[in-house]
Design a protein around this nucleic acid. Sequence first.
DNA 1: CATCACGATTAGGAATCCTAACCCTGTCTG
DNA 2: CAGACAGGGTTAGGATTCCTAATCGTGATG
Lengths: 302, 302
Amino acid sequence: MRRLPPLNALRAFEAAARHLSFARAADELSVTPGAVSQQIKLLEDTVGTPLFVRDPRGLQLTEAGAAALPSLRDGFDRLAAGTRLMTERGGPRRVVVSAAPSFASKWLVPRLDGFQAAHPDIDVYVHADMQLVDFASGEADLAIRFGRGEYEDLETQLLMAERIVPVCAPALLRGDPPLKAPSDLAHHTLLHDDGRTEDGPSWAMWLAAAGAQEVEGTRGPRFNQSSMAIEAAVAGKGVALAKYALAEADLIAARLVIPFDLTTPTEFSYWIVHPEAKAALPEVAAFKGWLLSQVSPEQGPA
Amino acid sequence: MRRLPPLNALRAFEAAARHLSFARAADELSVTPGAVSQQIKLLEDTVGTPLFVRDPRGLQLTEAGAAALPSLRDGFDRLAAGTRLMTERGGPRRVVVSAAPSFASKWLVPRLDGFQAAHPDIDVYVHADMQLVDFASGEADLAIRFGRGEYEDLETQLLMAERIVPVCAPALLRGDPPLKAPSDLAHHTLLHDDGRTEDGPSWAMWLAAAGAQEVEGTRGPRFNQSSMAIEAAVAGKGVALAKYALAEADLIAARLVIPFDLTTPTEFSYWIVHPEAKAALPEVAAFKGWLLSQVSPEQGPA
DNA sequence: CATCACGATTAGGAATCCTAACCCTGTCTG
DNA sequence: CAGACAGGGTTAGGATTCCTAATCGTGATG
């Protein structure tokens, strides 16, 4: 027989452990910090072990507390998912999708009408943010992230690989001077995506691979979002190094061209990521299936 | 932000849905049925949907309730696992293993000392029972079951395949009459494992495969546990059809021999089965790894 | 050295939860 | 076919749990 300590105490612990703060946990639970303190003491008495080290400057989990946290977080995730399954029968369904801002605007949003057409009963909320912070607080249902696919305690599935291509406005090809060889880049403006460095290779790396070491690879404007570099390229401001997925729509619409067909593969890919518990929600499953169908239209996941 | 209904109400619902009875749920939770009734009404008010159809002769889940139950059960499983992780630090650890009686006595128990040697801090409780009923009530941590590996909502991993062999005491080989060909079985006693039919082929099937149709395959004593048929064979009472895994120890010790080397493969195998939530418990993981190491000594799971 | 941020502690009141007793309905049983 | 029984529903009121508000202690901060 399953034996559980007082559930509210467990929940208070889970929140406090997640925030490493009674005050923030209390805020999340809409109670006072004192209440959290009492609940946690009760839990510690029940299980017979201290769960936090109370430094005067903050909290720290004991080994016992740290060992239990992942299971507890996952457990409450599942209770939340189960509750949603009973609450939202027939009501409006929604998925909250988290993605990097550039990916959201350049890849996801242009395709969303396809999802809406296939699932008119599900509303999609796109949550664009730089890092993957939404799951701990329970805000997002599913995320698309660019990286190595190493996300702890989250279910992960490959969406698609990525490669880096140079792009510019078509007019630049016959500009002054024309863009015929990588060395011609010396007389053009290079547009830099200055996001987090791990996101992809820089102009310097690309130029080296293209054998155009003589071109200075650090000049030119820098943007902290890939989409801005791409939009600058569309506007004819220069040549950008772009992730293919983000430039694809502009390439198909002929607002951009690939001047030199030297693409650099990356070790990073796009991943679909979500807490395991979310898999039980049909709207999340539907969105995931649709995402995968966007990549290989005939076939969803295995 | 994760929004949850009153947790005690959720737990009451989960128990009532599992038992399809307020009274049994109340018993499990050590409260009165009235309390359960109130909690469930509270939950139904909170989520705005009825969860049970109250027939005068019992309960039935509504669609909403049925949809939510698996997530909730799994959620509470995980909370229980997390609680154990904090409770049993340093204390005595234990695994409760459920297995069929014959498998437990003939295969599992003879090897257990190896596990005890490798993990002296973990106590193993062997729970022998005919069906797989222990998980719902939370009694067992892990089970070994013989079948097709189709266990809903449970994590499943193949332990080993199985095949059926005839076995008898060595003395019978030179008995009167001697056992030289399958047709000689006509003058010997056949020992029948009369357990659930899906467990394996009968003597009739084996004799047909051996080309010994003239032997009457229904005579002889019947046992409702495989181990009893094997023990009867060891005692020289006749020839039994045995699962190889169960006879192995007696074969190695030369208390049994295989008179005819015609083994019948089965479509059933042994599976390691447990609720997903149990994977978080180190003692369960240790036992599972040890089980797999018993099958292929050099290599544990993938 | 005053202030702030963080947690611990306590008393008392608010909210929740449970029991006990009773009702209703269909089924089983002699 | 009547009575017992088993299942669930309902209610009042008391037991328990939980939370707030106020106060204290401690180290970091400016």
